Computed example of a mutant assay.
Amino acid sequence: MAFSVFVVVIGLLFMGGGAAKLAGVAVMRGDAKRFGFNYSVYRLIGAAELAGGLALCAARFAQQPLLGISAAIGLTALMFGAVAVHIKAKDAVAKAVPAGAFGLAAAAIAYFFAAS
């Protein structure tokens, strides 16, 4: 039960972040510019976050562990890429911590899907 709640909460948070990028929220536009991304490319990142979060939730509800593993691995890679972008932009560590934490959460989800 706790695992299901964890997966859904993390999935919803990924969907929220992805939706904010797709919607063109001002903060996201500013981040894209600061990171040197064309906003169209940044929206693709948002689409990947949204799709990955949706896939996590769907995998849990449909009891499809391979979908969950795939989505979680993709989100893990995406988040560790985000950490690298924060480092390249010379951001304060505090700005990279959420991406790192979400990457670790996604990695844990992949592990637990594989173990179940």
Rank of each mutant, 00 (worst) to 15 (best):
I73Y: 07
Q63N: 15
L75A: 02
L22A: 06
I45F: 13
G18N: 08
F102L: 13
H86G: 03
A26I: 12
A108Q: 06
F61I: 05
M28H: 09
D91M: 09
A20T: 06
I45G: 03
G46L: 04
V85T: 06
K88T: 15
P65A: 09
A115E: 15
C57N: 11
L78M: 10
L67Y: 08
G53V: 00
G46N: 05
G100T: 01
F61E: 03
L50A: 12
A94W: 06
V97P: 00
A26L: 12
A72L: 07
F112T: 08
A106N: 11
F3K: 05
A59Y: 05
A55H: 01
V7R: 00
L104G: 14
V83C: 00
A89D: 04
A23V: 08
V5K: 08
A114E: 08
A23W: 13
M15I: 10
I73A: 14
A58S: 05
V25P: 02
A82M: 07
L44D: 03
I45D: 03
G11T: 10
Y111I: 14
A82F: 07
V5S: 05
I69F: 01
I10M: 09
Q64F: 11
S116G: 15
I109W: 01
A77M: 15
G46T: 11
Q63D: 15
G52C: 01
A114H: 09
L54I: 14
V41Q: 06
Y111R: 05
L66N: 13
K90S: 12
I73C: 14
V25K: 12
A115N: 13
K33P: 00
A72E: 04
A108H: 02
A108C: 13
A82T: 10
V25H: 13
D91G: 10
K33V: 08
K90D: 09
G100A: 01
K88H: 13
A59Q: 10
A89R: 02
G103E: 08
G46S: 02
F102W: 10
A58C: 12
A62H: 02
V25N: 08
A20H: 04
L67D: 11
L75M: 04
A94S: 13
K90Q: 11
G24W: 00
L75Q: 04
A106L: 10
V5N: 07
A101G: 03
A92F: 00
L78F: 08
A48G: 05
G81V: 01
T76H: 04
V83H: 06
F112C: 12
A23N: 08
A106F: 01
L66E: 14
M28E: 15
V9F: 02
G81H: 12
G16E: 11
F113W: 07
K88D: 15
V8K: 09
G18Y: 06
Y39K: 13
A92Q: 01
V83F: 09
